[in-house]
Design a protein around this nucleic acid. Sequence first.
DNA 1: GTCGATCATCACGCCAGACTATAGACCATC
DNA 2: GATGGTCTATAGTCTGGCGTGATGATCGAC
Lengths: 288, 288
Amino acid sequence: MIDSDRLRSFIAFGETLSFTRAAERLHLSQPALHVQVARLTEDLGVPLYRRVGRGLELTDAGQAVLAFARDQDRRQQALRTALGTGPRPTLVLAAGEGVLLYVLTDPVRRLAGRAGIDLRILTRDQAGVLAALRTGAAQVGVTALTAPPEELHAVKAATTGMIAVMARGHRLARRRTIALPDLADERLIVPPVGRPHRDHLDRALAAAQVPWERAVEATGWEVMMRYAALGVGIAIVNDICIVPRGAVARPVPALAPLAYYVLTRPGLPAEDPASELAERAIAAFRAR
Amino acid sequence: MIDSDRLRSFIAFGETLSFTRAAERLHLSQPALHVQVARLTEDLGVPLYRRVGRGLELTDAGQAVLAFARDQDRRQQALRTALGTGPRPTLVLAAGEGVLLYVLTDPVRRLAGRAGIDLRILTRDQAGVLAALRTGAAQVGVTALTAPPEELHAVKAATTGMIAVMARGHRLARRRTIALPDLADERLIVPPVGRPHRDHLDRALAAAQVPWERAVEATGWEVMMRYAALGVGIAIVNDICIVPRGAVARPVPALAPLAYYVLTRPGLPAEDPASELAERAIAAFRAR
DNA sequence: GTCGATCATCACGCCAGACTATAGACCATC
DNA sequence: GATGGTCTATAGTCTGGCGTGATGATCGAC
């Protein structure tokens, strides 16, 4: 059997990617923790992390072991709960802000109110959602993806189009739908460079040779739409969003639709609350 | 985290229900093992076993912990397999002889031939199948039950009637079906007293006030039918059985049909080979 | 009542693991 | 490219926890 102290140490290490900080968290000396991880590595016979520049990163095997360790930890908590002692287990959901605000309201409300379930929510971007699931930090994740990831259980819940959100009196508000050329020389509210949505917009507008101007950079659909409503510019967002007062939305069919996936870790038992949450999340998309 | 050495010790203890023998199996002294189990009990805060007369038995909590420990052990083996090191995990199926002989042939053949799966079969009676699943000794079980058990995931696969098996030239072989009075003063091949099937027969025949004679007591449907074919008497068996050469079978509608259940431990992930085996078992019943 | 078997506890010795100290690796800055 | 800072990795020392042998406690069988 794999030594549980070593697994516990590896959880701390895998979460911090630093022997020093992980040791602090465990109230242990850094060498002690290092030896624990070394023993675990030796026991499993596979390198669990590698040096990359100044820092460290988990290998694929390390990610698998981290996820395994967290799973085992959760199972042990569940056992303690079943035996009547110990706290109730926590169910962790990772999703983007938009999904949390506009789609998952009903599932979250239902499970949060349930006795015996301790729900935690991680607001993460696409990469963060995937990382949270891969390492077992979350049991359920919802995010937009171009393709379902390997190593995770993914169910496509919906494909959503893009909408242009603008102040009610905007000149483009008279149109039924917005074509890309309509956006020429418009002031757009966009996320910072590097965010998937920004890159997507950049590419699409460049391909259509549409010149545009940056009104303001903002992160988070709620924020973007708020400034759009105030007349700062046009925000291109996902049509799961609920448009705020003072703004109107018009579809932009030329932008490729996004597929939303509900993700769980493989090996999830059907009786787990996480399975119920995943199913409710899918239903919430469908009922939209 | 629960100490894994203690869990491993508890597996040995739970399987032997003897500190002395479990300690031998682990190449450990009896006091050392006793302390391990005591520490585990203290950690979990619930008694895991109790004294009953001279021997010991597991409490419900103890059974749950034993099953949990075995599950965890299996998961760790699966992790090692996934990492490329370690042996392939074993899948344990517990079922009665008849089911194994006549129904599960195809599922067993398919999974046994699969690379990466190490199939083990436990031939057990009804109580043994249930015990093997409750304590995690088996992942999949198939048996006849009057009612699905609590604490286990049960799917009713089929309800089967009873047939009377007799030598081809037997006087009752001329009938299409056999009523209970037809069996009056016949010589029957029956299992020993205490077996569910024997008790069931005793009650049914007594209720119909049918006197009968015991030809021979035998355990196992294959054996019973063999002697029926040889003219020793009439064997009342389940209609899943394939009648041997030289014998004929006639339905006995008056005997209550049996419901066969495919059992798995709750919390089984859908990707587990055990889930596939369970589904194939259900399909095998339906395809009969 | 006595004996045999097995669980449960005690006292002692020893090794796994934790700690301090320090060498090694890597990057940043000058 | 030299220096210093930060963090990982290793060596040596020591202590607490675990295993062992001895023995008490308990139950059933004869």
